[in-house]
């Protein structure tokens, strides 16, 4: 079985290597080929040749769609080296052209949502904040820092999310995230605007203790406040001539 896969794998690898030059003009047919070649070599071993999924390796793509594929590729979550680990944001492994091709190809397996057109500039910050705190903060924290959510999963930080990725995540519900189907496109614009504002405020910066809340603040109070003060009391409270100096007559 593996030997059978090896032949197209090697052939496609060669084809894949030669495609790295990134030629600008491709026919639709070549684009199709690029998509299917990439899928066959990079994705099929876990997601199945027809996108049906492989037991204990990867889920089916028949319920996904273009937005889902676009999301995982552009955030570097796929390709995933180890299927036992939660996919996290990472370096993007494909060129723009390859992503477009894969989205077209693999995105066609399922009838999930299409890539949304998100316009953060048109978003209402106040409504975005209300929606964020009602729906998102429980997992992603009010600062956008992300948190452990149980079951060994984590809601990731939102510090690097783009508006499109935000919209895709809301509509697709990647990983352990539920789908927020009742968000209108205005709602998505609003939430995207709010999250971009959080990023602009640098709410997870060191001087905000990573946005981790009162636990980090308390730790900082001890390390940056009490410890220096204890050191200062040692300086202040230890007599210059030592505690065991002879007792003198009061001047």
């Amino acid at each position: 079985m593996k030997a059978l896969l090896a032949i197209p794998a090697v052939a496609a690898a060669v084809a894949g290597l030669t495609s790295f030059g990134g030629s600008s003009q491709r026919t639709a047919r070549q684009q199709d080929d690029l998509g299917s070649d990439l899928y066959a070599t990079q994705c099929a071993s876990c997601h199945g040749v027809e996108g049906e999924g492989v037991e204990d390796r990867g889920p089916t793509l028949l319920t996904e769609g273009r937005a889902a594929v676009n999301f995982v590729l552009r955030t570097g979550r796929m390709p995933l080296a180890n299927p036992d680990v939660q996919p996290n944001r990472g370096p993007v492994r494909y060129s723009e052209e390859e992503i477009v091709a894969l989205v077209d190809y693999a995105g066609a397996f399922g009838d999930g949502p299409d890539i949304p057109d998100v316009n953060a500039d048109a978003g209402d910050l106040a409504n975005g904040g209300l929606l964020y705190r009602l729906n998102c903060a429980a997992c992603h924290v009010t600062s956008g820092a992300g948190a452990a959510i149980g079951g060994g999963r984590e809601a990731p930080p939102l510090t690097k999310s783009t508006p499109t990725q935000i919209g895709e995540a809301i509509l697709v519900g990647p990983g352990a995230m539920p789908v927020f189907d009742t968000f209108s496109s205005e709602d998505i614009n609003d939430v995207a605007a709010y999250i971009l504002d959080l990023q602009a405020q640098e709410t997870t910066a060191p001087d905000d203790f990573g946005g981790a809340g009162p636990v980090a603040e308390g730790l900082a109070a001890w390390l940056l406040g009490l410890l220096p003060l204890i050191a200062l009391t040692r300086w202040i409270g230890t007599p210059h001539e030592g505690r065991d100096a002879p007792i003198e007559e009061a001047p």
Binding site: L134, A147, I149, G150, G175, A176
Partner: peptide
Amino acid sequence: CSVGLFGVDNRQPDTLRQLVCPCHQSV
């Protein structure tokens, strides 16, 4: 507290469906 944390992953092999409260982690 408001139980707003719905961890749901319907993708095999690791399906997950739990409602978690973010205050004291009741599941």
